[in-house]
């Protein structure tokens, strides 16, 4: 197991380096902006004195590396901020203050995170069930009409941008058929039933978009496994088709599914941004779009980093799980 522990450790170190690199890139790109941050923050009608004051307050005069170091310090140790009259403390994972609302970015993210996590995790359960189920079914019924129909559906799912799926579902399900309410976020703690009921459509939207890839992958991996020698041996021993497909072929597809699932978190987060905006769910994605439109750089930087953290984490978990699920992988 030593080899495995070493592999996992190297993976974690790699993830940390990736995150640091993302933070540098994001920080440098965003703060070496062609536009004047102080002017944008202050508004178009600000006098030069006011702009100067904002520059001082936001420490925009400091060299970039000083500000970046300050930013990293804030994440590790917290930071004290002068808000003009008083001094506010921003506790340990401090990502700075919003230019617009003077709120702490960490706080903003913490209030938005449950919505986004509810959306992505709930949808994940659905897309795994839908996707893997469709894949198994199309292998089980291979060569028949069902397979062709499912393959066509999958292709359609892959070809439709997630916000179009959501738009159409919302209009049909909520508008025309009135089966579900127009989604409105209800915290889980307040009312679990309403929470799930309101999130059902966003979940479905994200799940349909993602499930298509899982269906493709499951089908392809299972077909590939079915062509292998050991399956022929099982068949020769008289193992039934149901067991061959349901147990042995599925096992072959397991590792790729795990890997794709963790890697999918990145694309799911992108999809979540669109879904939150479309359905008006107050999550990280919606806040990010808002921050982008008003050029609230600390919020943008903080959110990109937090999202990057989850994606990098998911990738690292994927590699470890993948290595565990498929012993043919050589650990390096």
């Amino acid at each position: 197991m030593n080899g495995f522990a070493g592999f996992a450790l190297r993976r974690v170190i790699g993830a940390v380096i990736t995150l640091l690199a993302i933070s540098v890139i994001v920080y440098v790109v965003f703060y070496v902006t062609p536009g004047n941050v102080a002017q944008i923050t202050c508004g178009p009608r600000c006098s030069p004195e006011q702009v100067h004051q904002v520059t001082q307050q936001l420490r925009l005069d400091d060299p970039l590396y000083v500000r970046y170091w300050h930013f990293l310090e804030g994440i590790v140790a917290g930071q004290d901020y002068s808000t003009g009259t008083s001094v506010a403390h921003c506790a340990a994972p401090c990502l700075g203050l919003s230019y617009q609302s003077d709120q702490q970015v960490t706080q903003i993210i913490l209030t938005k995170l449950p919505v986004s996590l509810s959306l992505v995790l709930g949808a994940m359960v659905l897309w795994l069930l839908l996707g893997v189920g469709t894949g198994i079914l199309s292998v089980w019924r291979r060569g028949r009409f069902t397979e062709r129909a499912l393959t066509g559906l999958t292709l359609a799912g892959i070809s439709t941008p997630v916000f179009v799926i959501g738009l159409v579902l919302m209009i049909v399900v909520c508008g025309q058929l009135e089966l579900l309410p127009f989604p409105e976020y209800v915290p889980f703690a307040d009312d679990p039933e309403q929470w799930a009921w309101n999130l059902l459509l966003p979940w479905l939207t994200l799940a349909v978009a993602e499930a298509a890839y899982f269906a493709r992958l499951t089908r392809a991996s299972m077909l590939e496994t079915l062509a292998e020698d050991h399956i022929r041996t099982f068949r020769a021993y008289g193992v039934g088709e149901r067991a061959v497909v349901g147990r042995h072929a599925l096992r072959g597809a397991l590792a790729p599914i795990i890997a794709l699932n963790a890697n999918d978190v990145g694309s799911a987060v992108g999809g979540a941004v669109l879904i939150e905006t479309l359905f008006g769910l107050p999550g990280i994605g919606q806040e990010l779009v808002h921050a982008v439109t008003v050029v609230d750089l600390p919020v943008v930087v903080g959110m990109v980093l937090v999202i990057g953290f989850f994606v990098v984490l998911a990738n690292a978990v994927a590699d470890v799980l993948y290595a565990l699920a498929d012993r043919r992988v050589v650990l390096t």
Partner: peptide, 11 residues
């Protein structure tokens, strides 16, 4: 490793 839509949005 960068989330595409997110990075594009931010940029």
């Amino acid at each position: 490793a960068m989330p595409l839509i997110i990075m594009a949005l931010a940029l």
